[in-house]
Design a protein around this nucleic acid. Sequence first.
DNA 1: CTTAGCGGATCAAAGGTTTTCATCGAGGAG
DNA 2: CTCCTCGATGAAAACCTTTGATCCGCTAAG
Lengths: 339, 339
Amino acid sequence: MSIHARPTLEDVAARAGVSRATASRVLNASPRVSPEALEAVNAAVTALGYQPNRAARALVTRRTGAVAVLFSEPEPKIFDDPHFARLIRAGARALADVDVQMVLMLVHSHDDQMRAHRFLAGGHVDGALVFAPHRNDELVSIVKKLPLPVVYAGKPWGSLRGMHLVDNDNEGGAVLATEHLKSLGRRKIVHVSGPVDELSAIDRMNGFKSALGLDDRAAARLMEDGGFTREGGRKAMSALLGRVPGLDAVFVASDLMAAGALESLQEAGRRVPEDVAVVGFDDHVAIAEHTSPPLTSVRQDSDEQVKHMVEHLVKLLRDETVKSKKQMLPTVLVRRESA
Amino acid sequence: MSIHARPTLEDVAARAGVSRATASRVLNASPRVSPEALEAVNAAVTALGYQPNRAARALVTRRTGAVAVLFSEPEPKIFDDPHFARLIRAGARALADVDVQMVLMLVHSHDDQMRAHRFLAGGHVDGALVFAPHRNDELVSIVKKLPLPVVYAGKPWGSLRGMHLVDNDNEGGAVLATEHLKSLGRRKIVHVSGPVDELSAIDRMNGFKSALGLDDRAAARLMEDGGFTREGGRKAMSALLGRVPGLDAVFVASDLMAAGALESLQEAGRRVPEDVAVVGFDDHVAIAEHTSPPLTSVRQDSDEQVKHMVEHLVKLLRDETVKSKKQMLPTVLVRRESA
DNA sequence: CTTAGCGGATCAAAGGTTTTCATCGAGGAG
DNA sequence: CTCCTCGATGAAAACCTTTGATCCGCTAAG
């Protein structure tokens, strides 16, 4: 071993006075190794500052020690949405904790999809975490075909057979929000929903409907799509104000839209919460605490969600035979001043 | 090759009727190969859906085809700050375009630093992009010691000798902002600054000072640290209102702080821009367009910055001999209603 | 006295690619 | 006709690790 080259297992073994195989066993915590050998090897490792060569290891074990984290989102949304940063951060932490690398891919264009396919099919990662909430997302069908352990965030569109996913209880959260408004004595409650090509939005709609015992026709008049954007929230609120006279409460399917809705209400001269009570969804602190008034919201714990996803994926990577599993995470109402 | 196993170069070579060596040459676009061989190999590749094994390749070339992207930030800020998501997104895109993997690491705790060190020293990536704006950041000293091509975002604290970085023209932007306020006829201009442990904040302070031709003592009375947070911006503004009677304009070193400052001004009953003109920094759309009134701000193009960083790193990876180089990106003033 | 068993170390093969070096054949110069 | 040159190709080494098979020295059982 030259001065500058990184030490190899061979060097470690030589210094410890054992064979390469034994040194390897020490590193992999095999039980079949004597205490003396163990100590000698460990000493050599620290003395030399040895780092296993990942490529060599991957070559023989057929494991890379890396997982891909895929986001499929229309461009503009992804970087306005604070949620995104949060998910990434949670993912980075959870993966670091189990010492696996996070390879991040944002797939948007068709080219990106091809690239992702090549990459995943190429066996460059051991598994993947997929965030793809939209209807008929090409990415999902691509990933689904691959013989690769995958855990989805939320329900991807289409058949769920054999898939692994961790979802928030969107419907339950929506019921929570709506029941809360009812318990405040509100009688005319409306809903600013997310786009109908996202299942989370649909689940929230369903929660709203069922909490009020509405059939589809009755519900339709009380709901308006805000597209999960601030501006959309504002417009949807305006539309509802025009269409539903006497409305006294609104459940908005995201905090960002709720911020828009509050603006709209203010313009219309309605006081919150006196005239109209508002409940959001996400409990995104950076938003919810800075609206006026501060926003009552349904908390979904993204950190927890991602942590569960990682745990599940790790399990999949270990024993090959975990059967399809869906996890549902609870949501809770956080009261502030808007309702 | 069995049915299910991924095809290897050997399989490709066999099918094309050439040797492994020749097949490899084709894949690496070596000139020393006959047209027929080239065609045969390419045909075999597509027929088999061959994907080079990255681990095997890395083992021999000592290149991984991946770079690390490191963020060093105190936890809370990183996921409040929309800037973060933007940088990541830009990085993902730019790296994907040159077909290198992005390994994301958020380093915060001491453990994280150790992990990052191990990882980088272990030769698991070819280079790194580092975002570490704070004074005496441990991460920078760690990375600096490594024999690894690194490009920094902005100036890291300490000696810049031999370092590669892409910075925004913070000082120039600050001059722009201040000159603009002067040109509006404002006479008593103050500054809400960022924390003095970030060089970008200091550069902006310097721009402010030099545009007004102030010495340090005179300047000190007109500046207040807002810590790059919304709440800090609000407090700093209040302090300045108390200390500098008759102030008629303020240059705030970030949009987030400016949002806080606007709240403070409103509370104090000052009209913007009539009584006090306000200019922010960052031009973060999600903020600047939604304050009231909408915020005039200095734009720094993060996408561009990251793109340059990636380009520079790629260059470093190719020819080993790019001499130390600092790039400075221009800033521009975006006029809205607050000034 | 033979042999099975056991803890533990070692040998050697395997994993897929790049790259150096040697070889081979064809064509040009002498 | 021989000798060289040159371009294309192939054989084999090297990269570093894991792991199944093997081996060694001993004890305990038959």
